[in-house]
Write a protein that binds this DNA or RNA. Structure first.
Lengths: 143, 143
DNA sequence: AGAATAAAAGACATGTTTATCTTAATTTAT
DNA sequence: ATAAATTAAGATAAACATGTCTTTTATTCT
């Protein structure tokens, strides 16, 4: 469904949101340990998100990644778009390029419902509300 | 969601089912033209399905691929399992290896519903019933 | 100012999926 | 029997995703 890169990104952002108000930046080492992901690969992903201003970063001693209050309000769908693009949200279930109501693949309507349900889920959830659940101990972002 | 290989496989099987009773085998050339897929790659996929006895084949002149009545009754989920495995049907939405009710990722229950809906769709549809819709002109397996 | 720290950037490596090509094996028709 | 047609099998290649390493740049602390 989502690429590994995108899964790491979502887990990372939710974790960063839990640390939003402690005034401390999170180093890539700590971050990848907290979400159980390969460190240099996670760094790449974070750089991309930082360039797209989905997260913030500062270099140097006591530097690291963090998100501000505005950034905590973004929804999962924005992260997915930033990393994986929109194919997963709009593509045909059987790979037809021009699948549509008037030119449907054999599972067009049923698959559209599933895919739209997924889009809806991504569109509903903000990073912040998922972080609150994580802080409360009701969910996990690492194995 | 599904790999390209799996999408080609499903389209190919539905097409083969539409040709089930005309007593003629379908060559890989004709098949890949009918479903708009790369010929040698499709051949590989068909070989794998043939070895797993999901489809049948005969070599030589007037040979090709076909499915019998029993094979037309299989459900999409069997094709998915044969090509892509079960990860798409059971895996965690955020990639946690041991995500579960008692150790849930932040979107565990919502994602499970989506994934189970997809499994249900794959489990409902037989090749044969999708072929009937294709014959009737109500759906397409090529662009 | 200089040293230490940490992200940014880009090169490099590995693995998987997708795709192609070549040769072999099998079957049918002449 | 021989030739033609067609799948089977395996080697090769290209593209993409994933993962690692090294160098550069920016910041902070002493």
């Amino acid at each position: 469904m989502l690429s590994n890169a995108c899964k790491y990104a979502i887990r990372a952002l939710i974790y960063l949101a839990t640390r939003m108000n402690d005034g401390v930046k999170v180093s890539i080492r700590e971050l990848s340990a907290e979400i159980d992901s390969p460190e240099p690969f996670t760094a790449k992903i974070m750089q991309s998100l930082s360039k797209q201003e989905i997260i913030s970063s500062v270099k140097g001693p006591h530097g690291g990644f963090y998100i501000d209050e505005k950034q905590a309000e973004i929804r999962l769908i924005e992260i997915v778009k930033a990393i994986d693009g929109t194919q997963v949200l709009t593509g045909c279930g059987l790979g037809l390029k021009n699948c549509s109501e008037t030119h449907p693949c054999p599972i067009h309507s049923e698959f559209s419902a599933i895919r739209d349900g997924f889009s809806h889920l991504l569109n509903e959830k903000t990073i912040q509300e998922l972080a609150i659940e994580l802080i409360a101990g009701h969910s996990k972002v690492k194995n």
